[in-house]
Amino acid sequence: MSAALFSRAFHRAVLHGVLLITSLATVFPLMWMITAAFTPNDLITARAIRLWPEEPTLANFAEAASRHPIWTWLWNSILTATLITVGKLVLAVPAGFAFGRMSFPGRRTLFWFVIATMSFPTVLAIIPTYIAVVKLQAFDTYGAMIVPSIPYIGFYVFYMRQAFRSLPSSMFEAARMDGAGLWRQFTEIGIPNVLPAIAALSVISFMGAWNIYLWGQLVLEDRFKKTLTTGIAAFADLEGADRVWGPLMATSLLSVVPVLLIFLLAQRFIVEALAPGADER
């Protein structure tokens, strides 16, 4: 083997080794959580850490449900994340079409204004938004959790604009010649051809909404209105020093499974959305 080939093989082996170690370090906490969720609580800390349960059991889920309304938290998370995602898409998809395929005065200025909102730290808006929620008597309601989370769509508008701009102009020109108005162009030509991009944004939005923590802690006080993210924090705080790791890890596993399933189901669309497409104009 020549020196060049040996050097290339050596660097590749080192790279693969680094990637393997990094992957194991990333996956290990998840594997331990899954193992602890199905391991009897008294065995979790009594024995060395293992990556598989020795005596698998579903008792941790029942124990967690007897201590806290975890199934209600799960439903609350699904409900709020879904409505936030739908709200973002309802605003971002038409806006992306308008910026990508329509011409109107001030389009460029307005588009850059939308893009500029991406650099605005959302934490700065927490206090005025919280005051508005209290004054509107919406505190401790699902609306307080959902509505203020929807307008942060700068990235979504930009992404959808790029998706619509990547479509061939000839498609829209042919539709206009056939008498199709903007609405038909949007619904019958635009949306069907950018479904992978919409699916990708749906997953991104759902994951972001699912993981909302700080805002949920501020506006949701009733324990039956909490989401899994805020509920797990309450679970850990209420147990104190006598923390039961099995039920806590079972609840944590519930917070991971829905997002993972959605990602796996939409994986094909995400790959299509990220694959190189038509040239942008």
Rank of each mutant, 00 (worst) to 15 (best):
F111M: 05
V157L: 05
L110S: 10
S119D: 15
F139W: 12
S103A: 15
Q162A: 10
F104S: 04
L110Y: 02
V147F: 05
F158C: 12
A144M: 06
T109P: 05
P151R: 11
A144Q: 05
Y152D: 11
I150R: 01
P148I: 01
G143C: 08
I126P: 02
P151I: 06
Q162L: 08
P105W: 02
S149C: 12
A132V: 14
T117L: 00
I126R: 04
L136Q: 01
F155K: 04
R107M: 07
Y156E: 09
F158Y: 14
M145G: 03
M160P: 06
G143Y: 10
G100Y: 00
I115A: 10
Y159I: 13
Y142N: 13
V123S: 14
V114M: 11
V114R: 01
Q162V: 08
V157N: 04
V133I: 15
A144C: 12
T141E: 03
R107P: 07
Q137L: 15
S103N: 14
K135Q: 13
P151S: 09
S119R: 14
T109K: 13
P128E: 12
M145I: 06
G154A: 12
I146F: 12
Y152R: 05
I150M: 10
A132W: 12
F104W: 09
Q162G: 12
T117S: 00
G106V: 07
G143D: 06
Y130I: 05
I146S: 07
G154N: 03
G154K: 11
V114S: 02
I153P: 01
G154V: 04
R101W: 03
I150A: 03
G106Q: 08
V123N: 12
F120D: 04
A138G: 10
V123W: 10
Y159R: 11
F139D: 08
P148R: 00
P148H: 02
A125D: 02
A163D: 02
I126H: 06
V123T: 14
S103R: 13
A98G: 11
F120W: 14
I150T: 09
Y156M: 11
T117H: 00
V114P: 00
R101C: 04
A138N: 06
Y152S: 12
M160R: 03
I126W: 10
V157Q: 06
F111Q: 03
